[in-house]
């Protein structure tokens, strides 16, 4: 059984004259331990796909099956619990709570799940240490660089040991060096810590870190490509593919 499966997944925004078909009957699967990137032009439905898979939004038609559970059938309380326990989110603009420290931001999912503050804080410190931020635990987001903030966000996404990590343009707000660092970290998330990742990106260089790329256009899947991350030049190959499409 796949970790994630979408069946005829469709999302329509607006009504009447302002109706927009963001996703058009998309079927895809993500296996456990797989790193999947989603690419496509602006407005093709990449982020919409991510939000539906992550239970942040409800589909107009179709379903999302995560670990055998149909997310569309869950009420808000159970869906919230799924997000807390089984999914980690990494956003383009980091989305850290500005008034909390790095450690407090990372421990949020556990605290919201009812864990004791002390236990959550210790686990947060462990993850921050793994990601090279042991000295930044008590700093607030405005005291960290972009790359550091994104690493805090990655730690937050991983602290509850979710099966699936969703990353929406995780390097979009970073310079190329920081972006490579973050992409490399995401690769470790899959290889070392055994999570699955579904990542939206427009950057072929970052997409090249994935095992597979799905290409969307006008809300539909138009192509898929398997990659060999060990192979040099995969980024160029992805770029050519994007330009061809």
């Amino acid at each position: 059984m796949s970790l994630v499966e979408t069946q005829q997944l469709t999302k329509v925004y607006g009504q009447g004259e302002t109706e927009v078909l963001a996703l058009d009957h998309v079927n895809l699967k993500i296996e456990a331990g797989e790193f999947v990137a989603v690419m496509g032009p602006s407005g093709c439905g990449k982020s919409t796909l991510l939000h539906l898979v992550g239970g942040l939004d409800r589909p107009t038609e179709g379903s999302v099956i995560l670990n055998g559970h149909n997310l569309a059938a869950l009420d808000d309380t159970r869906l919230t619990a799924v997000r807390r326990q089984q999914i980690g989110f990494i956003f383009q603009f980091f989305n850290l709570i500005p008034v909390l420290s790095a450690q407090e931001n990372v421990s949020l999912p556990l605290v919201l799940d009812g864990a004791r503050a002390g236990t959550a804080a210790q686990k947060a410190t462990d993850w921050l240490t793994r990601l090279g931020l042991e000295d930044q635990c008590h700093r607030r987001p405005d005291q960290l660089s972009g790359g550091q903030q994104q690493r805090v966000a990655i730690a937050r996404a991983l602290i509850s040991e979710p099966a699936l990590v969703l990353a929406d343009e995780p390097t979009g707000n970073l310079d190329s060096r920081a972006g490579d660092e973050v992409a490399g970290l995401l690769r470790r998330v899959v290889d070392e810590w055994g999570r699955s990742i579904l990542m939206v990106t427009h950057d072929p260089r970052i997409a090249a870190y994935a095992d597979r790329i799905i290409f969307l256009k006008d809300g539909r899947v138009i192509d898929e490509t398997r990659l060999n991350a060990a192979s040099v030049g995969e980024a160029d190959r992805v770029k050519e593919k994007v330009e061809a499409l």
Partner: peptide, 16 residues
Amino acid sequence: RRDIGLLRAVGASRRT
């Protein structure tokens, strides 16, 4: 709204 969205995304209930 972004902070609230983030909290909901990482699992805060409506009650929280």
